[in-house]
């Protein structure tokens, strides 16, 4: 149904919209409204109803080019099928985690996978160093190596309870529960009100919630 290269949402079966809504915190109308957002994002560079990495970059950073490890990880986590593009169903699945009503365990898990750059099942010190270096470059901030190491040492002293030099998922969970502000990025308040943000869904709707 969501092979959107051929089908408009109008041709989608209600049951598929209902399935997506059923498996997510979204109502059917909210899924339809998110389809309006998906259409906009997926046609911004290549008009094929699939979100390519360049389109994700353009949406998040208003520039289609430039390498960034965070963008790569966000894209990989959205791209469940690992086929190099984000389809509508994958878009809904990933955004579900960012819904204010999504279970905190899902947010903790998503953030862990985001920061586990090498996907080893642990957040390693080198990965944290790499991510900190990336954000410093992105924001034109400079910190002395001494202060940088102090920040990372302190973070690991707090998070790495078994002192093995890496943060396991259980350690991450305990750590973010102690510092819930670290999950701030995992919630998008906009998702509570998508039908207002994308009212044009009403022209294609299959159902009145």
């Amino acid at each position: 149904c969501f092979d959107c290269r051929q089908n408009s949402p109008r041709t989608c079966q209600y049951v598929d919209l209902a399935r997506l809504a059923h498996d997510s915190p979204f109502s059917v109308n909210e899924v339809e409204a998110l389809y309006e957002l998906f259409k906009k994002l997926s046609c911004s560079i290549i008009d094929d109803m699939l979100i390519h990495k360049e389109e994700l970059r353009l949406a998040l950073f208003q520039a289609p080019y430039g390498e960034n490890i965070f963008l790569d990880r966000v894209f990989d986590l959205f791209d469940e099928k690992k086929n190099g593009v984000i389809e509508f169903e994958e878009f809904i699945h990933a955004l579900s985690v960012f819904h204010p009503n999504a279970p905190i365990e899902e947010k903790i898990d998503f953030a862990f996978r985001l920061y586990d750059l090498r996907q080893t099942g642990f957040i390693e010190r080198e990965e944290v160093q790499q991510m900190v270096a990336t954000i410093l470059m992105e924001s034109d901030m400079t910190l002395s190596d001494e202060l940088l190491n102090l920040i990372i040492d302190k973070t690991f002293a707090d998070a790495d309870s078994d002192k093995d030099g890496k943060i396991s998922k259980a350690e991450w969970k305990a750590y973010v529960l102690k510092h819930p502000s670290l999950l701030k990025n995992m919630t998008l308040p906009y998702l509570k009100d998508v039908t207002t943000a994308f009212p044009s869904f009403i022209f294609n709707t299959e159902v009145e919630d």
């Binding site: 970059r57 949406a59 102090l150």
Partner: peptide, 29 residues
Amino acid sequence: KGSDSPTIINAFQLIGMSSFLDLSGFFEQ
């Protein structure tokens, strides 16, 4: 007590400041 070391930001707080991790960009175009 008596320490003069500055308040140290958590590394993940710093990392969380990346624009690429702020998906609200989807809704702000």
